[in-house]
Design a protein around this nucleic acid. Structure first.
Lengths: 326, 326
DNA sequence: CTGAAAGCGCTTACAG
DNA sequence: CTGAAAGCGCTTACAG
């Protein structure tokens, strides 16, 4: 910029005016500055600009895995809202590791992102309190923050799971298995609560061997499904706690001679083309992301005060697998 | 930092030393500085740091759609490599719009990203030449750059499509349809070339009504598939040019009374569970991303000079749909 | 072991 | 309409 000013024979501030399209520059001066800019290949350094302005026009997004078909549309929606507000998106995958979540969040804050959208891996977010106090707008999505008061945008996992399980019960099932994610994950627990509520509402007992929370790795899920489907009194239906669990269970069921009912939490791309087509309790990941990002920017605009908790409904999509008889 | 220095009764440089773990500070001084840091809640501003250091330790990724199941793993892989190099990832979706690609790329450059990984939407990347000359390492993935010399990491779309179509021919098909993406997209053209090469190698004529390039929207693809499968002399097999086309065609075929052979370019999550299971020519999106990002950092390290073009193999995965007889 | 000065590339608040 | 000075928050190159 100094070079441009020198070459155009003007002051720094005048170059700044031209670069930012501010008024108060003679057409002639402007032309000279423009010429210098092109001749020197000047490109404004936005980092320097933002250092001075205070806001970086960027927000950070921390999720579990950018490649997960559930989170990818959520990320895209956040990006879209950021774009509408002229902000860029910095992205990080925590790989479900609380330490990595923390590192990413603090790295983003060190870069002075204006805000943070977090799908938390950890259960203790007190490390973010100084950052939030310093003005970093923070919204949690999919799972609430741990041990601090903060905005959260969640799906109604309890209600959704309850509805899905009630659907199986309505189709005659009494022995229903539940395979979900790890017990320290909020969504896993909520969905299990929904399962229990539906069973209780129907006056059905729950044999604890029908319930399994744990990693979503294929081996574990396969083993648990086979266990529940084997033995003397196997379950006649399964409710799966998320998309990854569902995919593995579909594979297990495909290898079985008899047909077993299944309702899965989360929709899958080709679910309608399988036979039977898979009945699911669908979330709207893009809407989750959009809602969270909008809340973030509203907070940045100073409109919000008290932490808000938004809960989005789920939708039961009936396709066939959930209507199979016992 | 100034406040910390004042409170600890030391100079700025000493605070800097403590914050960065540089040697040459008495344990006692260090303790005083640390106390001031905690008391004041000091957090180093990495943006300011990078302004001074010259490198921002961040790279930009521009792709078509973060939510696309093909690009999401690619993005994740880029992120992973960036992380290994201590860099953050800024992300942008071009929505297949050249103007938006350009805006994103220039916005990233204005933030002074160290490098750029680009899945191009446009066909003219001369706008990036000044940036590259100014030192922004740039690697194109999935599709080559237009009108400039630059690194490119591509899949062997020609070879992959040729192999897939040859597979259909080997199973007795003579009338094979090709439905692909828009003709200005490099990968679409390459895959069509592969189709033609396979047909020519088998001495088969290609009726131009069997070939359709255009948008991947469901309506168009559905119409084209139905057109090719209708009429007096319908095709007996289809080769689809990418994952989105494949999904729509699977839906069309599912509604048909007869079974039509299908080989799709790109793998799909539940492809093995459909009946018939879908035979595909698979790319490895994570490997594409990893390769591109590694090349980028090698270039940043100054190891590379001349633009390189890397081509990764595809893999024919035989599952059933491609082996159906005419 | 420690720190004052200059500078990274911009904008802000003024003054003319 | 135009520009000089100060400052955003850090690091670099020195000097002591």
């Amino acid at each position: 910029m100094k070079d441009v000013a020198a070459r155009a024979g003007v002051g720094l501030k005048t170059v700044s005016r031209v670069v930012n399209g501010e008024p108060g520059v003679t057409p002639d001066t402007e032309r000279r500055v423009q010429e210098a800019i092109t001749a020197l290949g000047f490109r404004r350094n936005d980092s320097a600009r933002m250092l001075r302005k205070g806001r970086t026009a960027s927000i950070g997004l921390i999720l579990e895995d950018l490649a997960d078909p559930f989170y990818a549309p959520l990320a895209r929606a956040v990006e879209e809202v950021a774009r509408e507000h002229g902000a860029l998106l910095i992205n990080g995958s925590s790989a479900e590791d609380p330490e990595r979540e923390r590192e990413l969040a603090l790295a983003f804050c060190a870069r002075r992102v204006d805000g943070l959208v977090v799908i938390p891996a950890g259960a203790d977010h007190r490390y973010l309190e100084p950052e939030m106090a310093a003005g970093v707008a923070t919204v949690f999505v999919d799972r609430p923050a741990g041990l601090i008061a903060a905005d959260a945008v969640l799906s109604d996992g309890f209600g959704g799971a309850r509805e899905g399980v009630a659907h199986l019960i309505a189709h005659g099932h009494r022995r229903i298995g539940f395979i979900g994610d790890q017990p320290h994950i909020h969504t896993a627990v909520e969905r299990l609560r929904g399962y229990r509520a539906a069973m209780a509402a129907a006056g059905l007992p729950v044999d604890e061997s029908w319930v399994s929370l744990g990693g979503t790795g294929a081996e574990r899920v396969r083993a648990e499904a086979e266990r529940m489907l084997g033995g003397e009194r196997p379950v006649t239906a399964l409710f799966t706690g998320n998309n990854r669990v569902t995919v593995t269970v579909i594979r297990v069921l495909a290898g079985l001679p008899r047909r077993v009912a299944l309702v899965g939490f989360d929709d899958l791309e080709l679910a309608d083309l399988l036979s039977p087509a898979i009945t699911v309790v669908a979330q709207d990941p893009a809407r989750l992301g959009r809602t969270a990002a909008r809340l973030l920017f509203r907070r940045l605009g100073g409109a919000e005060r008290v932490p808000r908790r938004v809960e989005l409904p789920t939708q039961l999509i009936v396709r066939g697998s959930g209507e199979l008889p016992p």
